[in-house]
């Protein structure tokens, strides 16, 4: 039974091939979270000490503990929740709409080569135009309300998703297509069973990038004509010289961005387990 011995040889081969470092030493694993937070702790310490030791003017950079207190007050008064909610609604609306628009569009553009060739110059032009450069245009056309804010986020989020989707479809291994065609698959089923699943990792990369953009652009959008939102909070606090509040807003938005990115990373990992 040649087959049996070979199978066994294969099995041991896999064990030997396992990437080194999969089984890490126990102390290394338990200390990992601590090691990762060292830099953050140092950063916060420096932030606390620089103003306290008068290396910088505490008026413009209050110590971290003051900012934390301001943050806690904002939280208790419910202001923080209100601003965060306003921001999240805008971000998620723009982000969600971008997903709905950009994925199908990207699939079509990537699949039909003539469409891609036709649209490519325009795509290149737009993706190299900073979204924020267009903010005044959006405000002019759509006014100061929610529409322009969500639209600018939608716009900024569309590009990474669109371009990654197009790229994902274009770079599907031709051998997989050939193999599927050899089994008699027509264009539609080829698309559904090969192109689409093969593009999922690339699409998710685009979605993750868009997630980051949705928070980045949000702040700028909220600095113009908003009555709520974290961007508004930051801008408004600066105007009224409530400097600790301003920093509280900044910290909140970076933590929000971080959490959003982590969530999307997890999701990406779940959908791309097969990718090495």
């Amino acid at each position: 039974m040649a087959s049996l011995t070979e199978t066994r040889a294969d099995t041991t081969g896999i064990v030997a091939d396992e990437p080194p470092g999969v089984r890490r030493r126990a102390p290394y694993r338990t200390l990992a979270p601590a090691r990762r937070s060292i830099a953050i702790v140092v950063l916060l310490l420096v932030w606390e000490l620089l103003p306290r030791l008068s290396f910088v003017d505490a008026t413009f950079l209050p110590p971290f503990s003051d900012v934390a207190v301001a943050w806690y007050d904002l939280l208790r008064s419910g202001e923080l929740a209100e601003h965060t909610q306003a921001s999240l609604v805008r971000s998620l609306a723009g982000f969600g709409l971008a997903i709905v628009v950009a994925i199908p569009l990207g699939l079509v553009i990537g699949w039909y080569r003539p469409v891609a060739e036709l649209l490519n110059p325009v795509l290149e032009l737009f993706r190299n135009t900073a979204a924020l450069a267009l903010l005044p245009v959006f405000v002019l056309i759509l006014g100061l309300g929610e529409t322009s804010k969500i639209s600018i986020i939608l716009y900024a989020c569309t590009w990474p998703i669109l371009l990654n989707t197009i790229n994902g479809v274009k770079t599907v291994d031709p051998l997989l297509i050939k193999s599927a065609r050899s089994m008699g698959l027509g264009a539609l089923r080829l698309f559904q069973k090969v192109i689409l699943p093969a593009s999922v990792p690339a699409i998710f990369t685009g979605i993750r990038l868009a997630g980051a953009y949705s928070i980045l652009v949000l702040v700028a959008a909220e600095m113009v004509g908003a009555k709520a939102g974290l961007g508004y909070l930051i801008n408004h606090s600066q105007f009224n010289f409530a400097v600790p509040d301003m920093y509280a807003g900044i910290v909140t938005i970076s933590v929000l961005g971080l959490l959003f990115n982590q969530l999307l990373l997890r999701l990406e990992g779940r959908f791309s387990t097969w990718r090495l």
């Binding site: 051998l175 193999s179 050899s182 089994m183 093969a198 990718r275």
Partner: peptide, 28 residues
Amino acid sequence: GPGLDRGVVFQQYALFPWRTAVANVEFG
């Protein structure tokens, strides 16, 4: 044209990486 009366085996296996072994065999 291609058809299920012929089966092609390629040098580079051409398995669908997002499918498990059994799901790959189910493909055809």
